[in-house]
């Protein structure tokens, strides 16, 4: 079954479910299916139990962080400049809010096909970061969803044991997010370059300010 067919099967089987196909530009050609949050759990259950699909094996769960993006476009507007109507360029900025994403790679051990890539997206990156957990459907997602929770901060509703897994419990940040700032713990390196050089500069600026503590 190709992705189009899976999409229409899902639409037919689950009322209200509206999966979208997310295309992939790479030669791998692994396109994916974006499920909406409300119907994701039922849809996943369907994908597992449907006799032709039979995706009984959830191989991989990945967290993704997409930052807010800002696109600017130039538009021509007419304005009154010094009493004369003129056409001027105005830069309009549109902010698309970012989101967190969970990606599941599903295979079928029975039918030996796959992968079907399923994506779920949160509403934003800050306060509404809930997604349905697939652990009740595929046990293999248990530790991986905990990891995504730990490192990205997606809260999986319905997960039996959602705790931090890799970092300690007292830790507060989500280090795999793109905007994570690590504690300033820079140490001398003989050949810093690129990102390390930037860190070195920042660290130096900090410690050379009067209230800065030396290293």
């Amino acid at each position: 079954m190709n992705l189009e067919e899976i999409k229409s099967t899902l639409e037919a089987a689950i009322p209200g479910c509206s999966p979208q196909i997310v295309t992939n530009g790479s030669p791998s050609g692994q396109h994916s299916l974006l499920l909406d949050r409300e119907h994701a759990f039922v849809a996943a259950m369907f994908l597992r139990d449907d006799p032709t699909l039979c995706l009984d094996y959830c191989s991989n769960v990945t967290g993704l962080d997409w930052l807010d993006t800002e696109t600017s476009e130039k538009v021509k507007v007419t304005q009154l400049v010094d009493g004369v109507e003129k056409e001027v360029d105005e830069v309009r900025k549109t902010r698309t809010p970012g989101y967190l994403e969970a990606v599941y790679h599903l295979y079928s051990m029975q039918k030996k096909h796959g992968p079907l890539v399923v994506r779920l997206r949160t509403e934003n990156r800050t306060d509404s970061v809930h997604l349905p957990s697939f652990t009740p459907i595929w046990r293999s997602a248990e530790f991986q969803e905990r990891e995504v929770f730990d490192l990205f901060g997606i809260i999986f509703d319905g997960h039996p044991d959602l705790r931090r897994i890799l970092m300690w419990d007292e830790f507060e940040d989500h280090p795999m997010r793109k905007d994570y700032v690590e504690p300033d713990d820079y140490e001398y390196e003989p050949t810093p370059h690129d990102a390390v050089l930037k860190k070195a500069l920042e660290h130096r600026n900090r410690i050379s300010t009067p209230d800065g503590q030396g290293a």
Binding site: E187, Y188, P190, P192, V196, A200, R204, A215
Partner: peptide, 19 residues
């Protein structure tokens, strides 16, 4: 640390990060 006498960091390699 050489925090008391900050030199501008060379944008190359070498000792650029020594603190």
């Amino acid at each position: 640390t050489n925090a008391t006498s900050p030199k501008p960091l060379p944008t190359g390699t070498d000792e650029s990060g020594r603190d």
